[in-house]
């Protein structure tokens, strides 16, 4: 069905099946593109009408899960929130898997190195009060200012676009890369966390932020506006201040449970939740 404004766009897709192909190659598909069609829908069109073997990774289709990161006309981005008419040049759209990762098949990169580095830098709250964490008596108290210190960096969806854009990660196998470092900073600066020394022991070495020379591409391509380059520079600052014995993180005690004087009742005017639709919920 052709809508008004539909134009044909050539999808030049990088193909590679390690069981069959000696090397990656490009294959052209002509796709009728109505206004508003996103790259992901174009790929679905190819799979349903032209070549069912075309492979890519997808889940939410709404820019939340981070599965469909790929190189679209030379820029790492999400296929699900990139409109074809916004990026196609002269009726041509180049689609390839994210660079800096091995290819599993076609547009599916092996994101294992990203997740390995991510988990190595302890992307979680670490505290010593294990009993409180397991059986919380209340929430840990954190001010709005404390929250703003790291809020921006919590929007990471681990799509790998920043890693694909990073020139240092492309060449230095010891460099952790922008995504793991931004997340390490996110937890390092969280006032509830108590693992600065443990994380510092990792970040003070080659896995740390020191190889970053601030190309800034990670922040330019991030589809969620996380700004990993900023996190890396802030991390450098904290680590340098700590080395010079001027940092505040080494002396920081993790935020405790909400003190009684901070407890407030429900604000006026906030409606109650609707009845649960599932029996036993809540």
């Amino acid at each position: 069905m052709a809508n008004e404004g539909t134009t044909n766009v050539i999808f030049r897709v990088r193909r590679y099946d390690p069981d069959r192909d000696a090397a990656p190659y490009y294959q052209d598909f002509t796709v009728p593109v109505p206004p508003g069609m996103v790259v992901l829908e174009g790929l679905w069109y190819i799979k349903e009408h032209m070549d069912a073997t075309l492979s890519w990774r997808v889940s939410c289709r709404m820019g939340v899960c981070g599965s469909c990161g790929m190189l679209i006309n030379g820029s790492p981005t999400l296929a699900c929130n990139t409109q074809i008419h916004d990026v196609a040049r002269d009726g041509l759209l180049m689609v390839a898997p994210l660079p800096n990762f091995d290819i599993i098949r076609d547009l599916v990169p092996d994101l294992g190195p990203l997740f390995d580095r991510h988990s190595h830098l302890m992307p979680f709250i670490v505290r010593e009060d294990h009993d409180e964490m397991q059986e919380p008596s209340d929430q840990y108290w954190q001010s709005a200012d404390d929250l703003l210190e790291y809020l921006q960096f919590t929007y990471c969806i681990k799509c790998g676009c920043c890693m694909a854009a990073c020139p240092t990660f492309a060449t230095d196998p010891t460099y952790s890369g922008p995504q793991p470092l931004a997340q390490a900073y996110r937890y390092m600066i969280d006032s509830r966390d108590g693992a600065f020394e443990e994380r510092k022991a990792i970040l003070a070495g080659e896995a740390g932020p020191w190889r970053c020379h601030y190309a800034g591409e990670c922040s330019a391509v991030c589809p969620k506006g996380v700004d990993p380059a900023r996190a890396i520079q802030l991390m450098k600052r904290e680590l340098v201040l700590d080395y010079l014995r001027l940092g505040k993180l080494r002396r920081r005690k993790p935020a405790g449970v909400l003190p009684p004087e901070k407890k407030r009742g429900r604000r006026e005017g906030i409606p109650e939740h609707p009845p649960f639709t599932v029996e036993g919920a809540g």
Binding site: K200, L203, A204, G205, E206, G208, L239, Y243
Partner: peptide, 9 residues
């Protein structure tokens, strides 16, 4: 694990 990069940088 090397921890020299912070002082070096």
């Amino acid at each position: 694990m090397s921890m020299r990069d912070t002082p070096l940088w």
